[in-house]
């Protein structure tokens, strides 16, 4: 197995996103590319990544392999790459990950026992969909966070608003007012869902600079799915369980 990126931004974004949820990550490499799926320890959030072979400058994988890494250790190595540096990874017979950063930095990192299970994700329908730029979404999260720990998303017909409510006050951000930055709002059913900023903020910050557009899909009191559209990466899906009135 050998994979070489062109530039380091995509891998940095992926590792940064994964690091918001887990300390140890298991990747699966097949002839088609590299995938990762993992949940935080309390099973509130899940990241599902599919990175196709076509996105790499060079990619070879003769047989399927799983490899586990400590994400903070891997992250430290990846951060040594400049923006334009390629990163090449392969696995040695001694069960070490060989990471070549740029032209001349050759790291070896110990792999860990992979504990991942392949739980398939069910296909669930979503009633509402909002597409907007990731930088706009990041700002909205910041706007809500000053009064609340939770983001409430509400759609009605083809309108949507984001809101938050806390002990000190509340905020409503009407998306119609800045339609220029909103790509699309659609809803089959009026939907309202509340999601924790503790999980949303870090992943949006992690992938935000690399992703142009994001798509939020949800149904009332059901999980939120965010798709980050990153040019070279096939798919980054982030799932977040809702907060519901008890």
């Amino acid at each position: 197995f050998e994979a070489k990126t062109s530039g380091s931004d995509d891998l940095k974004a992926i590792i940064s996103a994964i690091s918001t949820l887990v300390e140890e990550a298991t990747f699966v490499a097949t002839a088609e590319g590299i995938t990762f799926r993992g949940m935080d320890p309390s099973h509130v959030a899940l990241i599902d990544i599919s990175w196709p072979n076509s996105a790499f400058e060079k990619y070879e994988c003769d047989s399927d392999i799983k490899f586990g890494v400590r994400i903070d250790e891997f992250s430290k190595l990846i951060k040594r790459a400049d923006k334009k540096d390629s990163i090449e990874i392969s696995i040695s017979e001694q069960n070490m990950l060989l990471v070549t950063v740029g032209k001349n930095k050759k790291y070896k990192m110990r792999l860990i026992e992979s504990s991942a299970t392949d739980t398939p994700l069910p296909k669930i329908p979503y009633d509402s969909k909002i597409t907007l730029s990731s930088s706009r979404f990041d700002k909205i999260l910041g706007d809500v966070q000053v009064v609340s720990d939770y983001l409430t998303i509400h759609t009605s017909d083809s309108k949507a608003d984001f809101s938050g409510k806390g002990d000190s006050g509340e905020v409503v951000i009407d998306l119609e007012k800045d339609i220029d930055e909103i790509g699309e709002i659609s809803s089959k059913e009026d939907s309202i869902g509340t999601y924790s900023l503790e999980y949303l903020n870090p992943v949006v910050k992690a992938v935000g600079t690399t992703a142009g557009q994001i798509t939020c899909e949800f149904s009332s009191a059901k999980p939120l799915r965010i798709e980050f559209k990153v040019a070279n990466i096939g798919r980054i899906h982030f799932y977040l369980a809702p907060r519901v009135e008890s």
Binding site: M39, S42, H43, V44, A45, L46, T119, L121, P122, I124, Y150, T194, S196, K222, P223, Y239, A241, P242, R243, V244, E245, S246
Partner: peptide, 13 residues
């Protein structure tokens, strides 16, 4: 206050 749910109950139960 709203209570945090987990993904298991929506996806795998």
């Amino acid at each position: 206050k709203p209570k945090q749910t987990g993904l298991d109950e929506f996806f795998w139960n």
